[in-house]
Deep mutational scan, measured.
Amino acid sequence: MAAAAAAGAGPEMVRGQVFDVGPRYTNLSYIGEGAYGMVCSAYDNVNKVRVAIKKISPFEHQTYCQRTLREIKILLRFRHENIIGINDIIRAPTIEQMKDVYIVQDLMETDLYKLLKTQHLSNDHICYFLYQILRGLKYIHSANVLHRDLKPSNLLLNTTCDLKICDFGLARVADPDHDHTGFLTEYVATRWYRAPEIMLNSKGYTKSIDIWSVGCILAEMLSNRPIFPGKHYLDQLNHILGILGSPSQEDLNCIINLKARNYLLSLPHKNKVPWNRLFPNADSKALDLLDKMLTFNPHKRIEVEQALAHPYLEQYYDPSDEPIAEAPFKFDMELDDLPKEKLKELIFEETARFQPGYRS
């Protein structure tokens, strides 16, 4: 834990890192770190609560700039109880001085990944967590956004079992017609939660990839272990087919990539493993919904509104309290091709509203 900075004593240090967030945020305490930044909790002297502050230093890398800009653009436009918001952003007053960006968010005690390492969940908890994931996802999908990296560590939890989806750095506007060349190379989302079509096709992607990830998360809540822990690309596919069985001819016809289709045709026939054999203690309604989410063919996979209306979630289902976005989200430009200098300018502009004396 960093010592509390005395008023006016300059930035606090946390594990050798400068955290320049005073005077409003003090009493910093280390939480963890990701690929390009550290997260601390801090005391907000204005709202009198502890908050989470993520320090991001992305400006050396085009990919990190892209992810940072995506996350900020999306989260500043989203407003939903099951999606983490941005409360404040701290950065230098000029673009030349801006080396880091500090993002202030609600402090959540833990995440689903940490929880599943230590606790076996009751059916009631599984049901409530799944409902909140789908409630947040309904809003995301209504904005025409794909999260693309749903996994237990991106689901934040607090002691009252509130759940918030975080990390929109890989999110995209849904565009089933656009052929994202190089899709697989830039697709760094965790393999275990990846839909089979991501490994088999490169053309376009749809909201059904997020539903697949939610199915993987439900299976993990039922058993405290990942359902498809593939060691590499082909191993991942083999794990999936080992449980779902061989795809039907109709399902194979959806695979545009001939090499991928021929690979699947070359494999020995596998039978589907019954879900109640894998999860003998699970609620039968939970397994019915799991089956509809972990469907090989993305066109037959359940959609988020149908999933919310499934009998497993009937005690929570309330369409009048499951809000959607006001308007579909649009990125003005494809960020993939922009140089990091341009992305830095866009991050600077996007964060201006939090600067003292800002006038829109």
Rank of each mutant, 00 (worst) to 15 (best):
F354H: 05
H232S: 11
T159Y: 05
N253Y: 02
M98R: 12
P58D: 14
D44V: 06
Q236G: 03
L146T: 08
K344I: 09
C65G: 12
N27K: 01
T26M: 09
Q315N: 10
L338F: 14
I347C: 13
T181G: 05
V21R: 06
L234W: 04
S284M: 09
Q249T: 13
K203S: 05
L137H: 01
L137Q: 00
I255V: 11
S360A: 01
V39E: 00
L335K: 13
G16E: 03
Y43V: 12
E81H: 09
D337R: 13
V101A: 03
E60K: 01
V39Y: 04
L241P: 03
F168G: 08
L28A: 09
L75E: 13
I95E: 08
L75V: 13
E314K: 02
R24E: 09
V214E: 00
V214A: 09
N262M: 12
S284N: 12
L157S: 07
T159P: 03
D100F: 13
N201E: 06
P280M: 04
S248L: 07
L150F: 10
V145C: 14
G32M: 05
P339T: 01
D291G: 09
G204L: 06
I140T: 15
A219Y: 02
K117Q: 06
D291L: 02
D20S: 09
G136H: 09
G37I: 02
V214F: 03
Q236P: 15
I209T: 05
L200G: 06
Q132K: 00
K114D: 09
Q17C: 14
G85Y: 14
P319A: 11
T206I: 02
Y193D: 02
I74H: 05
N281M: 11
G37F: 02
P328A: 07
V188G: 01
S266F: 14
Q355K: 00
T118F: 12
Y317H: 12
L130Q: 01
H125A: 02
F183G: 04
S142A: 12
V46W: 07
I256L: 06
L267S: 08
D175M: 06
C127G: 11
V18A: 11
Q249N: 14
M108K: 00
S246T: 14
T68W: 09
K231Y: 09
L308I: 13
V39P: 04
H141V: 07
R50G: 06
E326T: 14
K54W: 05
N257R: 07
V101W: 06
I126G: 07
Q97W: 14
D167H: 04
I347L: 07
D149R: 02
R191S: 03
R277D: 03
Y205A: 05
P280W: 09
D100H: 14
I89T: 11
K114T: 05
S246C: 01
N238F: 03
E341K: 02
T159S: 00
D177W: 09
L157R: 04
A92S: 01
Q105S: 12
S248P: 04
I140C: 06
A3P: 14
Y205E: 01
M108L: 03
I89W: 06
T63E: 04
P23W: 15
H61I: 10
A143W: 13
E349G: 11
D106M: 15
F354V: 05
P268M: 11
A7D: 05
P226W: 03
L107P: 15
I126F: 01
R24K: 13
N253A: 12
A92P: 15
G10S: 11
N158R: 06
A325G: 14
R77N: 10
L343N: 09
E250L: 14
H180E: 03
N257I: 00
R353H: 11
A5M: 09
L115A: 11
L150Y: 11
E326P: 14
T159E: 04
L252P: 01
R353L: 08
